[in-house]
Design a binder for these strands. Structure first.
Lengths: 167, 167
DNA sequence: ATAAACTTTCAATAATTATTGAAAGTTTAA
DNA sequence: TTAAACTTTCAATAATTATTGAAAGTTTAT
């Protein structure tokens, strides 16, 4: 397998993985492209490399910036903008974990807390609802705590300490 | 908030969470419904409770069974089938983690391994592709190993040991 | 102030994914 | 073997989500 084949394979696999996890294809592919690029890219270069429109590129770059995993670079004397992604995988994982926690896990925890806090009314179904949503609430809080601890740990914590622990 | 409001809130929140993570709404809602039900339900009851069609219910129940989180129960003397979900949250998390690893993480690891194993050709771009996909490969393997260790541990391992460790 | 070089927005359209419902299939009882 | 009671399948359709492209917006240089 030579460079171009490998590159395309990586970008398209990353794109489908994104889709599978609720992230859109273009967004995932732009990030993949930047991740293996040796330099920052302009919007024009991204459009060209992925064969996507200007609008699509612009909107998805914005989302990546919102997620905190892509940054805009301004080159002195150049009017156009350059884009780069976080190159360190640990740092990348940390950003993604942090954002997913904030956007998705936290709101669900809130609902689980509300639902599991309703007044028991003596019926079995209410008792079951409270019991089950309480269990889910506890699990979600644990998972979220772990995720957030990971986010705040020093480099390499995930792969080193935890993997060793789990032997 | 009384029972029905809480129940609807839980089911619909679970449905949107599913959507956000690439699981379809009906599938997530059927699982949610079964999760808080005090008894096994028939297809008819699920259709009625969630206002979805017979075909939709049938297909999504099959998927849930494929995932290993719903089981079909046959009641002696009754022709229709009853469905129940895993009620233990730890067990549920374990099933889901196992399946997601098998279906999604493993195949990506395979591609990352292939891509990161291409022959260096002396160019900077090939070097970068290899370096970055290798880092991703290692991260993905670590994450997958952790997930699978969790899957094989005794009850409560996740919430107790790990949470304590992370204090 | 104007124009060139760029980026953003957003209504229209395309692509994808979910859902329906009715026909076909299966199982059991008589 | 027939029919009733169920479940599954799948082509058609609906709903959702992604993408385009051109107009509007912004910034900088002159």
């Amino acid at each position: 397998m030579e460079y171009n084949e490998a590159k395309d394979k990586f970008i398209s696999t990353w794109g489908s993985l994104g889709t599978l996890w609720g992230i859109n294809k273009a967004m995932a592919q732009i990030q993949a492209l930047l991740f293996i690029s040796t330099k920052s890219l302009t919007m024009e270069e991204i459009m060209e490399a992925l064969k996507i429109s200007r609008g699509n590129t612009s909107m998805n770059l914005r989302q990546l910036i919102d997620w905190g995993i892509v940054t805009k670079e301004l080159v002195a004397g150049e009017r156009k903008e350059y884009f780069a992604t976080e190159k360190d995988v640990q740092e990348l994982a940390r950003h993604i974990a942090k954002e997913r926690s904030r956007r998705e896990i936290k709101p669900v925890i809130k609902v689980l807390k509300e639902v599991s806090s309703i007044q028991p009314d003596g019926t079995a179904k209410t008792k079951e609802l409270i019991k089950q949503t309480k269990a889910l609430h506890e699990l979600a809080e644990s998972a979220d705590t772990i995720l957030n601890k990971m986010v705040n740990k020093e480099q390499n914590w995930l792969s080193k300490s935890l993997l060793k622990l789990l032997k």
